[in-house]
Amino acid sequence: MKNNVVLSLSLICGFLVILGLSYFTGNIIGTTEAHLENQDRGIFLDLLRPLGLLLFFVVAGYGLYRLNKSGIDQQRGIFIRYGALLFGGILCSIVYATWQIRGVSLWLIPLAALVAGCCWLVFRPSKEGEATDLQDLLMGDMSDPKQRNIMIRTLIALVPHMWLASLVLENTMTPVSLGDGLVQAELLTIAAIIGFLVTLFWLLYECKLFFELDEYIKQIYAGPLLLGLIVAIILLLLNDLAVRYFALEGVTLYWKYMSTWLVTGLLMMVAAIRGVAEEAP
């Protein structure tokens, strides 16, 4: 199997783990607990999720093992570190999600910080100033002030956005909803919606800045961004089907929103891999 295919597959599996965990923890710990308590899901579904997660771990682990053996890069062992990062991030997410009753997706923040920090430490250029191919696998170059600032600002915007998204999209920020009369609680609702939209546009603006860094980055990420949009729409449609099929009443608008971001991120990473792992003529 070609190296780029293996690498793509392993990352896809890694991301599926993250998606699965987000969903898993979201349903177990999140606000959907009440829904689950009222359901008789049967032993099949109870087994399906942990088995699915186990499968993802095994496949992702195998992909990383194969990559380490494949010699795609001379710095052997780097895949092990990358794998450790991936799994470390996931473990962090579990701990964080267990900790935070409502912070189902906030684990993205420590995960992003972990990846960004280690990206800079582990994949830094050699003494001659030559970057490894693997350095380009993770989006963004922390040694470039322009890119570093974009990433830091994105991280800063992400914190309130995730929090506000959970409040707004699950409609649980206040005991009232719009149209219940002009009370203080309603003003808070409006403030949360405005905050959500402002941070959303801020994030999109940072994406635009990254996209416009130069012609190569534009070429690499243009397709995936469009594809991400299409996939997000398909995902929203499939999500409703999945809700009906598995009787998972707990799938919220918030989860759908989060999955849109995650899928887009995944596609961008796969694009970066394709750009990096392609063999030079």
Binding site: D133, D136, D141, D144, D214, Y216, I217
Partner: peptide, 12 residues
């Protein structure tokens, strides 16, 4: 340009 661009150019 970005460092990624230089790397991609050098690697062909």
């Amino acid at each position: 340009v970005s460092r990624q661009t230089v790397n991609a150019l050098e690697k062909g």
